[in-house]
Protein backbone atom coordinates (compact mmCIF):
# COMPACT_ATOMS: atom_id res chain seq x y z
CA UNK A 1 0.00 0.00 0.00
CA UNK A 2 1.42 3.37 -0.99
CA UNK A 3 0.01 6.12 1.14
CA UNK A 4 0.33 9.88 0.81
CA UNK A 5 -0.38 11.87 3.96
CA UNK A 6 -1.03 15.60 3.80
CA UNK A 7 0.04 17.43 6.94
CA UNK A 8 -0.05 20.95 8.24
CA UNK A 9 1.72 22.90 10.95
CA UNK A 10 -0.62 24.79 13.25
CA UNK A 11 -0.28 27.01 16.30
CA UNK A 12 -1.23 25.58 19.67
CA UNK A 13 -4.00 27.85 20.87
CA UNK A 14 -5.70 25.48 23.29
CA UNK A 15 -4.41 27.32 26.31
CA UNK A 16 -2.40 30.26 25.12
CA UNK A 17 -3.87 33.74 25.23
CA UNK A 18 -4.84 34.59 21.70
CA UNK A 19 -5.09 38.13 20.39
CA UNK A 20 -5.91 39.58 16.99
CA UNK A 21 -3.40 41.85 15.28
CA UNK A 22 -4.10 45.48 14.48
CA UNK A 23 -5.25 44.71 10.95
CA UNK A 24 -7.98 42.46 12.33
CA UNK A 25 -7.18 39.75 9.82
CA UNK A 26 -4.75 37.55 11.66
CA UNK A 27 -3.86 36.45 15.15
CA UNK A 28 -0.59 37.46 16.76
CA UNK A 29 1.65 34.46 16.40
CA UNK A 30 4.96 35.52 17.96
CA UNK A 31 4.34 33.96 21.34
CA UNK A 32 2.60 30.83 20.15
CA UNK A 33 4.20 27.45 19.69
CA UNK A 34 3.60 25.43 16.55
CA UNK A 35 3.39 21.71 15.94
CA UNK A 36 1.93 19.19 13.55
CA UNK A 37 -1.86 19.35 13.45
CA UNK A 38 -3.14 16.78 15.94
CA UNK A 39 -5.41 14.98 13.44
CA UNK A 40 -2.57 14.79 10.90
CA UNK A 41 -0.36 13.08 13.45
CA UNK A 42 -2.90 10.27 13.76
CA UNK A 43 -3.06 10.09 9.97
CA UNK A 44 0.72 9.71 9.68
CA UNK A 45 0.72 7.02 12.37
CA UNK A 46 -2.07 5.13 10.61
CA UNK A 47 -0.23 5.23 7.30
CA UNK A 48 2.94 3.92 8.92
CA UNK A 49 1.02 1.11 10.61
CA UNK A 50 -0.44 0.05 7.27
CA UNK A 51 3.06 -0.03 5.85
CA UNK A 52 4.43 -2.00 8.79
CA UNK A 53 1.62 -4.55 8.58
CA UNK A 54 1.97 -5.13 4.89
CA UNK A 55 4.41 -3.23 2.75
CA UNK A 56 4.52 -0.09 0.67
CA UNK A 57 5.58 3.46 1.19
CA UNK A 58 4.48 6.51 3.09
CA UNK A 59 4.98 9.98 1.65
CA UNK A 60 4.21 13.07 3.71
CA UNK A 61 3.36 16.31 2.03
CA UNK A 62 3.01 19.87 3.24
CA UNK A 63 2.55 23.25 1.62
CA UNK A 64 4.46 26.10 3.21
CA UNK A 65 7.78 27.77 3.89
CA UNK A 66 10.98 26.18 5.17
CA UNK A 67 9.87 26.65 8.76
CA UNK A 68 7.28 23.95 8.12
CA UNK A 69 9.91 21.31 7.42
CA UNK A 70 10.24 20.21 11.02
CA UNK A 71 6.86 18.47 10.91
CA UNK A 72 8.01 16.58 7.81
CA UNK A 73 11.26 15.55 9.53
CA UNK A 74 9.27 14.41 12.49
CA UNK A 75 7.00 12.32 10.27
CA UNK A 76 10.04 10.83 8.56
CA UNK A 77 11.40 9.91 11.98
CA UNK A 78 8.09 8.25 12.77
CA UNK A 79 8.59 5.99 9.79
CA UNK A 80 7.55 7.81 6.62
CA UNK A 81 9.85 7.16 3.66
CA UNK A 82 9.77 10.42 1.82
CA UNK A 83 8.60 13.98 2.25
CA UNK A 84 7.60 16.72 -0.15
CA UNK A 85 7.27 20.39 0.63
CA UNK A 86 5.65 22.69 -1.85
CA UNK A 87 7.54 25.90 -1.33
CA UNK A 88 4.91 28.60 -1.25
CA UNK A 89 3.00 30.46 1.36
CA UNK A 90 0.46 28.16 2.98
CA UNK A 91 -2.80 29.25 1.35
CA UNK A 92 -5.40 29.94 3.99
CA UNK A 93 -8.23 29.22 1.60
CA UNK A 94 -9.09 25.51 1.59
CA UNK A 95 -10.00 25.51 -2.07
CA UNK A 96 -6.73 27.08 -3.13
CA UNK A 97 -4.87 24.59 -0.95
CA UNK A 98 -6.88 21.66 -2.30
CA UNK A 99 -6.01 22.75 -5.81
CA UNK A 100 -2.27 22.74 -5.02
CA UNK A 101 -2.43 19.35 -3.33
CA UNK A 102 -4.53 17.79 -6.06
CA UNK A 103 -2.11 18.97 -8.71
CA UNK A 104 0.77 17.49 -6.77
CA UNK A 105 -0.86 14.19 -5.83
CA UNK A 106 -2.26 13.34 -9.24
CA UNK A 107 1.26 12.76 -10.57
CA UNK A 108 2.31 10.57 -7.66
CA UNK A 109 1.92 6.85 -7.31
CA UNK A 110 -0.54 6.04 -4.53
CA UNK A 111 -3.28 3.73 -3.33
CA UNK A 112 -4.46 5.85 -0.45
CA UNK A 113 -4.35 9.48 0.55
CA UNK A 114 -4.82 10.48 4.18
CA UNK A 115 -5.68 13.87 5.62
CA UNK A 116 -6.45 14.81 9.20
CA UNK A 117 -10.23 15.15 9.63
CA UNK A 118 -9.73 18.85 10.31
CA UNK A 119 -7.04 21.28 11.34
CA UNK A 120 -6.79 22.80 14.77
CA UNK A 121 -6.61 26.38 13.50
CA UNK A 122 -9.65 26.87 11.25
CA UNK A 123 -11.49 23.58 11.83
CA UNK A 124 -12.95 23.61 8.35
CA UNK A 125 -12.55 19.91 7.63
CA UNK A 126 -13.06 20.33 3.89
CA UNK A 127 -9.68 20.08 2.19
CA UNK A 128 -9.47 16.27 2.13
CA UNK A 129 -12.88 15.59 0.63
CA UNK A 130 -12.31 18.38 -1.90
CA UNK A 131 -9.03 16.88 -3.03
CA UNK A 132 -10.71 13.47 -3.41
CA UNK A 133 -13.36 15.00 -5.61
CA UNK A 134 -10.82 16.87 -7.70
CA UNK A 135 -8.84 13.65 -8.14
CA UNK A 136 -12.01 11.78 -8.95
CA UNK A 137 -11.49 9.11 -6.29
CA UNK A 138 -13.73 7.84 -3.49
CA UNK A 139 -13.43 9.28 -0.03
CA UNK A 140 -14.66 8.95 3.50
CA UNK A 141 -14.49 11.63 6.18
CA UNK A 142 -13.98 11.13 9.93
CA UNK A 143 -12.47 7.68 9.58
CA UNK A 144 -11.67 5.98 12.86
CA UNK A 145 -10.82 2.50 11.64
CA UNK A 146 -9.18 1.05 8.52
CA UNK A 147 -8.98 -2.57 7.44
CA UNK A 148 -7.27 -3.56 4.20
CA UNK A 149 -9.22 -5.94 1.96
CA UNK A 150 -8.34 -7.07 -1.54
CA UNK A 151 -8.48 -3.97 -3.73
CA UNK A 152 -10.61 -2.14 -1.24
CA UNK A 153 -10.68 -0.87 2.32
CA UNK A 154 -13.18 -1.44 5.04
CA UNK A 155 -13.41 1.94 6.71
CA UNK A 156 -15.26 2.92 9.81
CA UNK A 157 -16.65 6.44 10.01
CA UNK A 158 -17.37 8.03 13.36
CA UNK A 159 -20.93 9.29 13.71
CA UNK A 160 -22.47 11.30 16.50
CA UNK A 161 -22.97 9.56 19.83
CA UNK A 162 -20.30 6.89 19.47
CA UNK A 163 -22.02 5.04 16.63
CA UNK A 164 -19.84 3.91 13.71
CA UNK A 165 -20.75 3.51 10.08
CA UNK A 166 -18.87 0.90 8.06
CA UNK A 167 -18.17 1.28 4.35
CA UNK A 168 -16.33 -0.82 1.83
CA UNK A 169 -14.43 1.57 -0.40
CA UNK A 170 -12.56 0.70 -3.58
CA UNK A 171 -8.99 1.82 -4.04
CA UNK A 172 -7.62 4.32 -4.76
CA UNK A 173 -9.33 6.33 -2.06
CA UNK A 174 -8.88 9.27 0.26
CA UNK A 175 -9.73 9.28 3.95
CA UNK A 176 -9.79 12.04 6.49
CA UNK A 177 -8.61 10.55 9.75
CA UNK A 178 -10.22 11.12 13.10
CA UNK A 179 -8.20 11.27 16.34
CA UNK A 180 -8.37 8.09 18.39
CA UNK A 181 -7.94 5.77 15.39
CA UNK A 182 -4.62 4.71 16.94
CA UNK A 183 -2.13 5.82 19.55
CA UNK A 184 0.62 7.77 17.79
CA UNK A 185 4.11 6.74 18.76
CA UNK A 186 6.61 9.04 20.42
CA UNK A 187 9.24 10.53 18.16
CA UNK A 188 12.53 10.90 19.96
CA UNK A 189 15.05 13.63 19.29
CA UNK A 190 17.67 11.11 18.28
CA UNK A 191 15.12 9.52 15.97
CA UNK A 192 14.65 12.88 14.27
CA UNK A 193 18.41 13.25 13.97
CA UNK A 194 18.73 9.86 12.35
CA UNK A 195 15.93 10.60 9.89
CA UNK A 196 17.86 13.56 8.50
CA UNK A 197 19.15 11.26 5.79
CA UNK A 198 15.68 10.49 4.44
CA UNK A 199 14.66 12.35 1.28
CA UNK A 200 12.81 15.63 1.60
CA UNK A 201 12.00 17.15 -1.78
CA UNK A 202 11.25 20.81 -2.11
CA UNK A 203 9.13 21.70 -5.12
CA UNK A 204 8.16 25.13 -6.33
CA UNK A 205 4.56 25.74 -7.42
CA UNK A 206 5.95 25.80 -10.98
CA UNK A 207 7.53 22.35 -10.53
CA UNK A 208 4.16 21.09 -9.38
CA UNK A 209 2.33 22.87 -12.15
CA UNK A 210 -0.02 24.77 -9.90
CA UNK A 211 -2.53 26.96 -11.68
CA UNK A 212 -4.12 29.93 -10.03
CA UNK A 213 -7.67 29.52 -8.75
CA UNK A 214 -10.02 31.91 -7.05
CA UNK A 215 -10.38 31.60 -3.26
CA UNK A 216 -13.79 30.49 -1.98
CA UNK A 217 -13.91 32.67 1.06
CA UNK A 218 -12.65 36.11 1.80
CA UNK A 219 -11.95 37.04 5.34
CA UNK A 220 -13.56 40.25 6.46
CA UNK A 221 -12.31 40.37 9.97
CA UNK A 222 -11.22 38.42 12.98
CA UNK A 223 -12.10 39.49 16.49
CA UNK A 224 -12.21 38.19 20.03
CA UNK A 225 -15.50 37.00 21.47
CA UNK A 226 -16.79 39.05 24.40
CA UNK A 227 -14.97 38.02 27.57
CA UNK A 228 -16.79 35.61 29.86
CA UNK A 229 -14.07 33.83 31.72
CA UNK A 230 -15.76 32.71 34.88
CA UNK A 231 -18.52 30.12 34.81
CA UNK A 232 -22.11 31.25 34.46
CA UNK A 233 -23.83 30.03 37.59
CA UNK A 234 -27.16 28.32 37.11
CA UNK A 235 -29.27 29.26 40.11
CA UNK A 236 -32.35 27.95 41.85
CA UNK A 237 -33.18 24.89 43.89
CA UNK A 238 -31.39 21.66 42.90
CA UNK A 239 -34.45 20.66 40.87
CA UNK A 240 -34.69 24.03 39.13
CA UNK A 241 -30.99 24.16 38.38
CA UNK A 242 -31.11 20.57 37.10
CA UNK A 243 -34.05 21.41 34.85
CA UNK A 244 -32.24 24.42 33.40
CA UNK A 245 -29.09 22.40 32.86
CA UNK A 246 -31.05 19.59 31.21
CA UNK A 247 -32.61 22.03 28.73
CA UNK A 248 -29.25 23.61 28.07
CA UNK A 249 -27.68 20.22 27.38
CA UNK A 250 -30.50 19.29 25.05
CA UNK A 251 -30.22 22.58 23.20
CA UNK A 252 -26.49 22.08 22.71
CA UNK A 253 -27.10 18.60 21.43
CA UNK A 254 -25.79 16.45 24.29
CA UNK A 255 -28.69 14.04 23.86
Amino acid sequence: MDVIVCVKKVPDTAEADVSVDAGGREINKERLTFAINEWDNYAVEEAIRLKEEDEGTVTVVTVGGKDKEDILRRSLAMGADKAIRVDMEDPEDSFVLANVLCTLIKDQKFDLVFFGAQSGDFNSGVTGAMVARMLGISHAAMVNGVEVLDGSIKASRELEGGLNEIYEIKLPALFTIQTGINEPRYVSISGIRKARKKPLDVMTPEDVGVTEVKPMLSLEKMYLPPPGKIAEIIGGSPEEAAAKLASLLKEKGAF
Partner: peptide, 24 residues
Protein backbone atom coordinates in the same frame (compact mmCIF):
# COMPACT_ATOMS: atom_id res chain seq x y z
CA UNK B 1 8.28 5.07 20.34
CA UNK B 2 6.01 2.84 22.41
CA UNK B 3 5.78 4.43 25.83
CA UNK B 4 2.90 5.27 28.17
CA UNK B 5 0.73 7.94 26.56
CA UNK B 6 1.07 10.29 29.49
CA UNK B 7 4.85 10.05 29.32
CA UNK B 8 4.72 10.60 25.56
CA UNK B 9 2.64 13.73 26.02
CA UNK B 10 4.94 15.08 28.72
CA UNK B 11 8.02 14.57 26.54
CA UNK B 12 6.36 16.06 23.49
CA UNK B 13 5.40 19.04 25.55
CA UNK B 14 9.02 19.59 26.60
CA UNK B 15 9.88 19.64 22.90
CA UNK B 16 7.20 22.16 21.96
CA UNK B 17 6.47 24.14 25.14
CA UNK B 18 9.72 23.72 27.05
CA UNK B 19 7.83 22.19 29.98
CA UNK B 20 6.37 18.73 30.53
CA UNK B 21 3.01 20.02 31.75
CA UNK B 22 1.50 20.74 28.37
CA UNK B 23 1.15 24.40 29.28
CA UNK B 24 2.06 27.21 26.90
Amino acid sequence: GTIPVTVRDALESVGTNNNPWGRP
